[in-house]
Design a protein around this nucleic acid. Sequence first.
DNA 1: GTTTAGCAATCAAGAAGAAAGAGTGCTAAA
DNA 2: TTTAGCACTCTTTCTTCTTGATTGCTAAAC
Lengths: 334, 334
Amino acid sequence: MLEERKKKILQAIIDEYINTAEPVSSGAIEKKYRLGCSSATIRNEMVELEKTGYLEKPHTSSGRVPSAKGYRFYVDELIKEDDISLQEIKYIQSKLETKVNEIEELTQIATSTLSEVTHYTSVSIGPRANFQNIEEVKFVLLGTRMLMAVILTDTGIVKETIIKFDEDITEQQVSTLNFIFNNKLKGKPLDEIDKPLEEYIFSEMNYSLNVIKPIMQQLDRVINEESKLYLEGANKAFELPEFKSLEVARNFINLIDTKEVVRDLLNTGFAKDINVYIGDENENEQLKDFSIITFKHRYQDKDLGTIGIIGPKRMDYSKVISVMKYISKKLNGK
Amino acid sequence: MLEERKKKILQAIIDEYINTAEPVSSGAIEKKYRLGCSSATIRNEMVELEKTGYLEKPHTSSGRVPSAKGYRFYVDELIKEDDISLQEIKYIQSKLETKVNEIEELTQIATSTLSEVTHYTSVSIGPRANFQNIEEVKFVLLGTRMLMAVILTDTGIVKETIIKFDEDITEQQVSTLNFIFNNKLKGKPLDEIDKPLEEYIFSEMNYSLNVIKPIMQQLDRVINEESKLYLEGANKAFELPEFKSLEVARNFINLIDTKEVVRDLLNTGFAKDINVYIGDENENEQLKDFSIITFKHRYQDKDLGTIGIIGPKRMDYSKVISVMKYISKKLNGK
DNA sequence: GTTTAGCAATCAAGAAGAAAGAGTGCTAAA
DNA sequence: TTTAGCACTCTTTCTTCTTGATTGCTAAAC
């Protein structure tokens, strides 16, 4: 679609811009990237790359800057494979070897490692609970009016919630609850803990509604609640030259502060292994200055959450994608 | 220590500066605050307030700005009591009425409410676990090689942790564990789960070290782990004029990003109900541009964590302190 | 036909200067 | 002790000028 030389020039310009954050001139390309043609030729090509929408100019007599379309082409076609050093690989390995007892913790370690290696802000979120199947439910009596419900899913995620009552609960009642839930729910998807079960317990087991209501409410809450966002390295963004602009800095803070937006970003579209959203590609005005790159945390192909990077559009896509690929592979145990 | 008129002028200057964020001139004070004297007199007093260290001047021909000492005097002596509106009271009430099952949640609601009412960034942290006494310990078997330990303390805080084993655990073993821990530990401080107990279980109960080690490790971890920081309204800071300066903005982000510093701030010095740290009063260069105000979340005088505000030195101390006093009283159930 | 050297035109960024305005400190009078 | 008056200081803003980078175009070279 784009002739070879145009590709080379586009790549050079984007690489250069990613490095310097300054509009790139034909002269700089001629000098630094030996493409075997003069600055005038490069200039001519630049004019066409601008006409076809891959480049932009801040003003008439300035160098060129990649457009969203330019970045998109770069990400889809020009990316450098395995842009990751031995040192980085070793560092990631050492980090991911940490013993953890909860999966959430591993996701967090991967998230902070990602931020450390790439020097961008990273975020992560746990898996949606209701896509998982119930392995086991346990009720534990704490004191006399407090119950803890522990749900173990087939992906190894453990969810627990505290349930308070206005009347005393007996050990007898607790074991009945354990019996019912484990027989009725084992192997079922998490979100099948619902009304029918409530009615069943109420009518068949002669339980008071005072006992069942709080249980169902809390289970419902814990199953449907959004998993917690984990954010790492927000300060890293402030090292970047684009954050000299107060406007950009404020937009960034607003973005990572409105958890719903970040959550949506992490929860959408996993057609590919690694998903790249450049600028306002996903139609959110708030994102116009930023790019988001996400991937699924999988272990043996089971979904354990999503990890992502939020950075400027002028992001080191090659590096980020390479590092993500590596971390993803390691996490999956492959 | 300070004559009445000087106090009035100092108060007027600080009030004005808190409002406008601009150096305050003698003329402005004369016009807006009817103190019954001319701008020249105010000017003379200002000279003395500056000599004694309560005020500063950005440059020769500019108005005055409060110094750290000035703010300190203001907070200690000139603060307005009950600087809180009926509307704000109602809003806080409605927020704090939310039903919660876990105390941490209530702390978080209080934290976000505080940020919403004051328009500053707020943070909170749970109580240090090891100051609490054990009410009950429960072990629950999940699958065959995974145990969940649930610890209930006398303050009603519930801590749970997952423990994984390399060998199968029987229900029999679990009930023995429950028996031992509840007999040995009930009423004891949390951090007494330690070596002697480990040896006791090992020798007296003939447990394999493969079982005890992971348990003690995880209990130790969960007891000594720092509670999670909760941060709300970081974006609010960016509405303030002081954040026009990139330097200040970056310092702020760095500050709230280095969790240890914030944690230290929330964990130190509770001589008073409400603690105010102005600028670098607590000797941390990072804090020089900011003030921190904290209070303890108590319920019936039991410590449930700490809640604080981080904002510019030019903070609306009266408002923040009034709102905190009100929230604190409500939380304590008084 | 493509590439390149040469060059005028453009525009941002920075320096330098001028003018305006706000606020002070001091003096002398009330 | 307080206040009016005023010179002085210093920031802020506006303007103008200069410098330098970079482009687009033209015409010659390949």
